[in-house]
Design a protein around this nucleic acid. Structure first.
Lengths: 146, 146
DNA sequence: TTAGATGCAAATCTTTTGCAGTGCG
DNA sequence: CGCACTGCAAAAGATTTGCATCTAA
């Protein structure tokens, strides 16, 4: 548990440099929190990162998270009724959201590329990412009578 | 152009009543604006609705739009870096967003239901809606050198 | 008549911005 | 050492809430 800082540095230094970004303890902490707590909002990342880095500012989290999403190190998820959410698992999965409690789950699709996710299906735009968002009730919300 | 109020009433009274909602001029105006200007934010709907209904409050637009989305008369779209967007075309299409300028376009898929959009593909949740979001560059942004 | 809707304003929440100081490379 | 990055605080933007008033049914 004391190796976290070291591990984060080992894991993210290279990708950060490749993206032309500096390796700061704030960025390492945010990347680490986004890995251990996927689908976190900026505020949640801030709360988690503060445990390891008490001085980190919420504004910094927003700035960093925007920057890292733009440079491809973070994936951004826009979920109804909550702020943006972030994760370090970038590819090969989609998301299901509970319309009642807001729970987000990862959804992996069969490995054969579905035709509807082929970028060329959209005419007149250069599509680079196609993602599926499922809306419904999670197990516990579906169980609760209402 | 003077028939708009009448047409909106004719079109939406029934669905509103079925959803257990009252037929007010504010709701009619918002539904009409969401139809003629799809993918509008609450603020944009407010500006448009104000042309026909100068007194309508932005707070009311938010309240109504939330309520109508919940009751299924409006579809809500969460697009990166803009607020929520709304439209009256509920089914049978998906969306493509320009990551540069924010343009939203409708995308229709071939009529055969793609396997990846089958709700049962998600285990442990009762999925009711599956939608695809495409991210990329629109024609004009792709054209602009940068 | 009356429960549901609206208008308005204040409160809340999220995100952005400007600037001075800090630290990575 | 220089420039990118951070901390801080203020501003901007989006959405929600409470309450008095209004109105569709």
């Amino acid at each position: 548990m004391e190796h976290t800082e070291y591990d984060a540095r080992a894991r993210w230094s290279q990708p950060l440099r490749v993206a032309g970004r500096r390796v700061t303890k704030q960025r390492l902490a945010i990347l680490e929190c986004a890995t251990s707590h996927p689908h976190s909002t900026a505020d949640e990342l801030h709360r988690h990162a503060r445990l390891a880095l008490p001085g980190i500012a919420l504004g910094t989290v927003h700035t960093v998270v925007n920057d890292l999403a733009e440079s491809g190190l973070l994936r951004r998820l826009d979920v109804p009724h909550t702020g943006a959410r972030y994760e370090t698992r970038i590819t090969d999965h989609h998301h299901a959201v509970c319309t009642q409690c807001g729970l987000v789950e990862d959804v992996a699709l069969p490995h054969t590329q579905p035709a509807c996710l082929d970028p060329t299906i959209v005419r007149g735009m250069k599509i680079t990412v196609a993602e599926v968002l499922y809306h419904g009730l999670c197990a516990s919300c579906a169980g609760s009578l209402d």
